[in-house]
Structure formats: structure tokens, C-alpha cells
Amino acid sequence: MTLRDVVQIVDGTVLCGEDNLGREVHLGFASDLMSDVLTLLADDILLITGLSNNQAIRTAEMSDILQILFVRNKRPTKTMLDLAKEHGITVITTPYSMFRSSGLLFSKGLQPVY
């Protein structure tokens, strides 16, 4: 699915990286544990997290993950968004929970990593 599809499915708001909404993403990984994210070999991943701090963006950068969905209306700081923009990371926020977001995206075809 495209990032535009992701936004539509989770009733999301794009906070940065609007130019990349046509980009395809095939895998989803939901975690607040950044060391767990760092174990992933794939990079074609939508990171779904409730952890809204610099390390979420840094971890995505280190893992070559180019899209993050923050759940439960978590609002990244300007510093976080600047960091995301610097590394071409699209940031989306949704009012839905991690469980609901993951379930909806899975049901529409986003594949699990494991």
C-alpha cells in the first residue's frame, strides 16, 4: 500500500514528508522498544509506535526506516520533525491506538515482519 493509503486507513494526519505519500510500503512493525526495531533486517517498514521522542526518529534513521506512524495522537516536537525531514522520514499521526492501527493496516494488506 502507499503512504497515502496508510493515512486514509488510520484517519491520519501527515506531519512531515507529504511529498512521499505515493511511496509504497509493504511491512509493518509495531513497537515502543527501539532495540527491538534495531534487530530488523528489512527496511521497507512502517514503524508504528507510541514512543514520541528523539530516539524514535534516530532509530528509524539508523534502521533505514522512512515512515513512522505515531499512535494515540502523539505529537512529535519540532526538533523531532526537523530530524525526520533531514533524513527524508515521513511522519504521520493517528488518533487510533497501536492495536487498532495495526489491525486495520494488517486487514488492508500491510504485512507483518514476523
Partner: peptide, 13 residues
């Protein structure tokens, strides 16, 4: 832990 680390996976990673 609030930073998303501290689960005891760092050295293993």
C-alpha cells in the same frame, strides 16, 4: 526505558 531502550538487548544486538 522511557527513551525506548533498556530492555537488555543492546549488547546482544
Amino acid at each position: 526505558r522511557e527513551m525506548g531502550f533498556g530492555a537488555g538487548m543492546g549488547l546482544a544486538n
